[in-house]
Amino acid sequence: MQAAARGREGQANTFAGMILDRVSEHRDDPAWVAARLAEPGTRFIVVGPSGETLKVANGDALWWLDDITRQQHLAQLTPTLLGVADDRAYFMLVADAELMKALADGAAATSVDLRRAGLSFNPFDAGLFAYAKGLAHWQNETRHCAYCGAPGVLVASGHRVRCTSESCGRLHFPRTDAAIIVIVEHEGACLLGRQRTWPPGRFSTLAGFIEPGESLEDAVRREVAEEAGVEVLDVHYHSSQPWPMPASLMVGFTAFARSRDIRYRDQELEEARWFTPEDIRQGIADGSLLVSPSVSVSYRLLEHWLADRGYDLGAMVAAVTR
């Protein structure tokens, strides 16, 4: 069973609270898969061409198809096995825009993207949507063999792509691009940065992708040095979060800096600043500071850093949104 990735205070990061048996041992068993497809309790999530899904029109929950509805409207689509929870099997169907619209109109459902779903869905629905979106993106991006260029075909219930060339026949596996995200501290202040394309006042923890031959901790030190010119000393793991936008895993850390000297080495950040807890409280209160949405692990990193100092980030944000 897959456990949730949790921060220090026990709260699961968004998309990481799903408890699901992915039953990988059955993906190559057509008889087992066919039997689960036909069970009355089996449910299907539909993913559209932009990674969207459908939610119930008057609520914040996934709109599920049963097998009867699938056979009536989407029998031409090949299901991808996702897993089993509470003895109910879950599958994914990837539909084009026309089919998505027809389904939504016929079921009085509405389209929803992953970010919005992460803010309102329960942990299971949000986590399963993230899983399905990431897998659908990989399937769409892996239509040809990366070695010889021959067409690929989905096998293992949608979790592998096999090259169709007899002289090649390689298997391709779903990929996840690991990235670090870190809250850096120095003597009671934390380092936050902003990109030029963000809304005015938006600041976030620093992040970046792992490079080949690099450890997670080394990536933290390199990214902070590249983006803000700050030298990082100790690095500690915090928690992780699936982030299939389109194919990332965010690995969260806390770290300590040698000093507060900021020297921009590249053009990725428009600005980086050190914030004390009072700076953050006052900035949120007067509207000059926007923090990351609560769907992100960046929010959790800041939330836990503030909580250690007796501040409640959720209360700060709620006070200005009431």
Rank of each mutant, 00 (worst) to 15 (best):
A219D: 00
F256C: 03
F275P: 00
A307Y: 11
F15W: 15
D29F: 04
S292E: 15
I262H: 06
N122Y: 05
L54S: 01
L191P: 01
V317L: 11
G229P: 03
G152M: 14
L216F: 14
Q11M: 08
E211A: 15
D60V: 01
D29H: 10
L103T: 02
R170I: 11
L290M: 09
G17L: 09
W243C: 09
Y237R: 14
D218A: 15
R6D: 09
A3S: 09
D96L: 10
S215W: 12
T14W: 04
A34Y: 00
A150C: 12
G118A: 13
A272P: 03
V232T: 08
E39F: 05
T110P: 01
P200F: 09
S111M: 06
Q71D: 12
E52D: 10
Q139E: 14
S167R: 15
A126C: 06
V220I: 15
H144L: 13
G152I: 08
S215P: 04
H172W: 11
V235P: 04
L135I: 08
Q71L: 12
Y237D: 04
A315Y: 05
H73W: 13
R36S: 02
A31C: 01
D105F: 02
V84A: 07
H73G: 00
M92V: 08
V153Q: 15
G10C: 04
Y90E: 02
S296N: 13
G208Q: 10
R300L: 06
D28T: 12
A34D: 13
H159I: 05
P200K: 15
E227T: 12
R175T: 13
E141I: 05
A34H: 01
F275M: 11
D60M: 03
P200L: 12
D96A: 09
F209S: 10
S204C: 09
A3Y: 10
A228K: 11
E52Y: 04
M245P: 00
L81S: 03
A255D: 07
V317H: 03
E98I: 14
D218M: 14
R263V: 13
G208A: 13
S24P: 00
A3R: 13
A146W: 11
T14H: 05
Q139G: 06
N122H: 14
L135G: 04
S294V: 07
R115N: 06
G41P: 01
M250D: 09
W63D: 00
A34W: 01
R88P: 00
A3C: 02
Q282K: 10
